[in-house]
């Protein structure tokens, strides 16, 4: 049933996102053409005006993509599950968990897609200014960075750290969406002012989250303070904050361990938000 839910979720959202992405790409191509003309042709007032207009248009579209993505994540959950369309969705023979998964997966995919299309639009538009060979320089830079890492003897670990970093990024995306869902599920419990109740719940969750993370970081800092780690890494709490003295070889396992703990903590936080949302939809639904 999750597959079917996803099919309808993507159908309902694609009709907004795809035309928007298409428009963004078209406008960035137009901008590229205009910039090209400005670089090669004789300068004219019309061309200058055009340059300003297309630049503003692309920037406006980039902002629109970001705003619409966030807005649609909220609206799809609110209208489709807790609003009018809830009369259709909540009587389908589907579990609450499947509903939350469908919304979460679609939200994550569209957020990544929006970011990717925004970057693509910027590259299309601005690469006109890039000098020939600058891409080659970029790859050269990457290669020399890898050389450097190999020299320090940590090249084998960079893949692992990179994977952990990406996982952490993905997890923070999921927790950002799940915080919205949990807040709305709590907000709908109110008889009146349900949107305000949701906003309040969102801030409440945010405060709880920041307390949790700051406590956690404090604990880790205390754990490392003054401790000698292997031969090279040494962390100290000074008046300025954390001071890290390290030799990159000994630092890698420590960074790795800390990233794993962060991932675990993020995973627990996401799971808690998911369970709250799912339980409330299942046991405490109150459609108006």
């Amino acid at each position: 049933m999750l597959g079917k839910l996803l099919k309808y979720e993507f159908r309902a959202t694609a009709r907004v996102f795809l035309p928007m992405y298409a428009l963004l790409l078209v406008m960035s191509f137009v901008a590229r053409l205009v910039y090209g003309a400005q670089m090669t042709e004789a300068q004219g007032t019309l061309l200058t005006v055009l340059t300003v207009v297309v630049t503003i248009a692309v920037i406006g579209l980039l902002v629109t993509v970001a705003v619409v993505t966030l807005l649609l994540i909220c609206r799809r959950f609110w209208n489709n599950l807790l609003g009018r369309e809830g009369y259709l969705m909540n009587v389908l023979p589907v579990s609450s968990a499947e509903h939350v998964w469908a919304k979460l997966i679609a939200a994550a995919v569209w957020t990544v897609a929006s970011a990717a299309f925004s970057v693509a639009a910027l590259i299309i538009m601005l690469s006109r200014f890039a000098e020939v060979g600058s891409f080659r320089d970029f790859w050269e830079g990457l290669r020399s960075l890898r050389e450097m890492l190999r020299e320090y003897g940590v090249a084998g670990k960079t893949g692992l750290l990179l994977t952990e970093g990406v996982a952490l990024l993905l997890l923070s995306l999921l927790s950002y969406v799940l915080k919205i869902y949990a807040a709305m599920s709590i907000g709908q419990l109110a008889n009146k002012h349900r949107i305000w109740a949701s906003v309040g719940a969102y801030f409440g969750i945010g405060i709880a989250e920041s307390i949790l993370y700051s406590r956690y970081l404090m604990l880790r800092a205390i754990h490392y303070s003054g401790a000698k780690l292997g031969s090279g890494l040494h962390v100290e709490i000074t008046g300025e904050g954390l001071e890290v003295f390290d030799d990159i070889r000994t630092a890698i396992p420590v960074i790795n361990r800390e990233l794993v703990w962060m991932l675990l903590l993020g995973l627990i936080f996401c799971a808690a938000l998911f369970v709250v949302t799912e339980r409330l939809l299942k046991k405490r639904l109150n459609l108006q």
Binding site: N90, V91, K283, N286, L287
Partner: peptide, 9 residues
Amino acid sequence: IKLANGLLT
């Protein structure tokens, strides 16, 4: 009717 559909608790 809404209670019977689980739309209300």
